[in-house]
């Protein structure tokens, strides 16, 4: 179960601006999904190691050899707001 306030908190963490209607719907939809998901709460998982990844290798490393960086015109070309060779964003504290 997840209530409206929790949904609002999570939306803020995720930088999603939800309308009131979306908030309500999200709360009920997420609750249904979580209810299903919470079935794993009944399993006995004591002493079971978590698996975050299935690939069983280590130390995949890259030699410290420079490769050309990309032309700025190219990387900035798709920027929503490029100014003076930089990416412009609204002030964090305007």
């Amino acid at each position: 179960m997840i209530d409206r306030d929790q949904v609002l908190h999570v939306a803020r963490l995720a930088r999603l601006e939800l309308t009131d209607e979306e908030l309500e719907r999200m709360a009920s939809e997420l609750s249904v999904i979580l209810e299903h998901v919470e079935r794993i709460g009944e399993l006995d998982l004591d002493g079971v190691e978590p698996t975050s990844h299935v690939v069983d290798i280590t130390n995949v490393l890259r030699a410290d050899e420079p490769r050309p960086s990309w032309p700025r015109e190219r990387t900035l070309a798709g920027a929503p707001d490029a100014t003076e060779g930089a990416y412009r964003v609204p002030s964090p504290q305007a």
Partner: peptide, 25 residues
């Protein structure tokens, strides 16, 4: 996908947080 380096940007009129939220919304 935050409206800074590529892709869509919305809500440019406000502060950073409103840009993020409007873009992702």
């Amino acid at each position: 996908f935050d409206g800074v380096r590529y892709g869509l940007r919305a809500g440019d009129g406000g502060d950073l947080t409103s840009m993020y939220e409007a873009t992702r919304e």
